[in-house]
Design a binder for these strands. Structure first.
Length: 418
DNA sequence: TCTGGGGTCCTAGGACCC
DNA sequence: TCTGGGGTCCTAGGACCC
C-alpha cells in the first residue's frame, strides 16, 4: 500500500505557526509579486475566495472580511517543509518527497490491519513535532491514494484526516464520489474531452478500456492512469537521488521595464540563482536558454503576454556563474527590441550532466580548480548569510525590476536577524 | 495598474543515416 | 506507370502537477 501525506493549506499554515492569533481566522498567501492567491486557510475557502485568482480582483472582499494577507516567504516554507519531511523520514522507511507539501510513503512493510493505527500515529507525530496539520490517504496505487487523500481533506471531521481505500467496495464508493476533474493526472483539457464521452466521475473513467485510453487520453499516460484507478500500481516510487534534467528561474518584474540594462541585470541575477541550484546537485549544464516576456498591446487593456527565447550550446558543460553569465548576455542582446514593454525574464539550463563527468573539448581549457573553489566559497557565504550577499557586478545594484512583496512575514527559522 | 514559479513526461514530425 | 525498409536523434509543443 502507498500513502500520501499532504499538508493542509501549507503556506497559510506556516504563516499561522508564528502568528497563533490567526488560528480559526481566514488567511491567504500570495504568489510572487503579490499577483495571485496561492494558499487559503479553510476559513478563506469558506468565503469563496478562489485558488489562483488574481489578488486585485478579490481585494475588496478580502479587506471587508479582514482576511490576513501574506506575500510568499519561500525561506520560511522551505525550512518548515524540511522539518515535515525529516519527521516523515524518521517515521517511515521509504519516503518520496513529491512537492513542497506532499510525500508518498511506501507502506509495504506495514500489516494491512495496522494501517489505520499507523496513519494516525504519523499524522499526530507530524503535527506535534512541526505544528503543521496533515491529511493522509492510503491505497494500493498512487492515483488512488490521492483520491483517498482528497476525500480525507474534504471530510476532516468524519474521517479524522485519514482515509484508507483497501477493499474494492471502498474504492468503488470513493471513485463514484470523485469528479473526474479531481483525479490526479486529469487537467482541464482532458475534462472537456471526457465530458463528450459522458465520463463524469472517477468510476466512469475507471471502467473505460485500456485501448480507449491509449487512443483518447494521451497514449501510455492514459493507460497507466486507468490501471492505477483499478488499483494496479504503475507509477513507481521515485528515487530521491535523481538529479534534475532542467533547472530554471523566471520572475515577473515589480513593474514593466524598457531598458536593455535592466534586462541584462535581471538575467545575470537569475543565472546566479540557477548556477547555485546546479552546483547544489553537483551538475554542469551545456545549454542555456534565455526568455523574455513582453506585453505590447496594453493600449487595448488586453493582457496578452508574448514570449520570445534564444538558446546557446556551450563548448563545454559548466557550473561557473561567470561563464554562464558571459554566454547569456549576447542572448539578451539578441532578443531585445527597443520600445517593447518587458514584464518578465527567465533562464533555463538543460543538457545537464554530472560535474565529475564533463566531456572536455580539445580546444577549450577545462574550468580551473581555483574557479570551482571560488564558487564553493561564494555559495557558502551566501547560504550562511543572505542569498545575495556576494554577487556578480553584472547582476546590478539598483534592481529597478525587483518584485513587489508588500505583505512579507519574517524568516523566523532561517535568519538570526529576523 | 494589476494575473506565479518550477518542474516532468510524452508525442508527432522533420531530418538524417545506411 | 512505377520509387524500400528500418532505424536514430532532435525539437516544438501539449498536458499535467503543486
Amino acid at each position: 500500500m502507498i500513502a500520501i501525506v499532504d499538508c493542509n493549506s501549507f503556506y497559510a499554515a506556516c504563516e499561522r505557526l508564528f502568528k497563533p492569533s490567526l488560528h480559526g481566522k481566514p488567511v491567504v498567501v500570495l504568489s510572487n509579486n503579490d499577483g495571485c492567491i496561492v494558499s487559503r486557510s479553510d476559513e478563506a475557502k469558506a468565503l469563496g475566495i478562489q485558488m489562483a485568482g488574481p489578488y486585485y480582483q478579490h481585494k475588496k472582499e478580502i479587506e471587508k472580511n479582514k482576511v490576513a494577507v501574506f506575500s510568499s516567504n519561500y525561506n520560511l516554507y522551505g525550512d518548515i517543509s524540511w522539518r515535515v519531511m525529516e519527521t516523515l523520514r524518521i517515521l517511515s522507511p521509504e519516503v518520496e518527497v513529491y512537492s513542497v507539501d506532499e510525500s508518498f510513503l511506501d507502506l509495504g512493510g506495514i500489516e494491512e490491519n495496522k494501517l489505520q493505527e499507523y496513519a494516525l500515529f504519523v499524522k499526530h507525530t507530524t503535527e506535534l513535532w512541526t505544528g503543521i496539520p496533515v491529511s493522509i490517504g492510503i491505497a494500493p496505487s498512487k492515483v488512488l491514494s490521492k483520491v483517498a487523500n482528497k476525500l480525507a481533506k474534504k471530510n476532516k471531521v468524519a474521517t479524522g484526516g485519514v482515509m484508507i481505500l483497501q477493499t474494492p467496495e471502498q474504492q468503488k464508493e470513493a471513485l463514484q464520489n470523485t469528479p473526474v476533474a479531481d483525479i490526479w493526472g486529469i487537467g482541464g483539457a482532458s475534462v472537456k474531452k471526457l465530458a463528450l464521452y459522458h465520463i463524469n466521475t472517477g468510476w466512469d473513467l475507471r471502467n473505460m478500456s485500456e485501448g480507449w485510453a491509449r487512443k483518447n487520453l494521451g497514449g501510455v499516460v492514459g493507460v497507466r492512469l486507468i490501471k492505477e484507478l483499478r488499483g494496479e500500481p504503475c507509477i513507481e516510487m521515485k528515487d530521491q537521488l535523481e538529479t534534475k534534467k532542467m533547472i530554471g528561474t523566471a520572475r515577473m518584474f515589480g513593474k514593466p521595464v524598457y531598458e536593455m540594462q535592466d534586462l541584462r541585470e535581471a538575467v545575470a541575477t537569475y543565472i546566479s540563482r540557477v548556477a547555485e541550484k546546479l552546483r547544489r546537485q553537483s551538475s554542469a549544464a551545456k545549454t542555456i536558454t534565455v526568455f523574455l516576456v513582453t506585453n505590447d498591446y496594453s493600449q487595448t487593456y488586453a493582457y496578452k503576454p508574448a514570449t520570445s527565447s534564444l538558446y546557446t550550446i556551450l563548448p563545454v558543460a559548466t557550473s561557473l556563474t561567470h561563464v554562464l553569465i558571459a554566454h547569456a548576455m549576447p542572448l539578451v542582446e539578441g532578443l531585445y527590441r527597443k520600445g517593447s514593454k518587458y514584464l518578465k525574464a527567465g533562464v533555463l539550463l538543460s543538457d545537464i550532466v554530472p560535474d565529475g563527468a564533463v566531456q572536455f573539448n580539445l580546444f577549450q581549457k577545462p574550468s580551473l580548480q581555483s574557479e570551482k573553489k571560488l564558487m564553493a566559497m561564494i555559495d557558502n557565504v551566501n547560504y550562511g548569510m543572505r542569498h545575495d550577499l556576494i554577487k556578480f557586478a553584472g547582476a546590478g545594484t539598483k534592481r529597478n525590476w525587483k518584485m513587489r512583496q508588500e505583505h512579507s512575514s519574517r524568516c523566523f527559522t532561517t535568519r538570526w536577524t529576523e
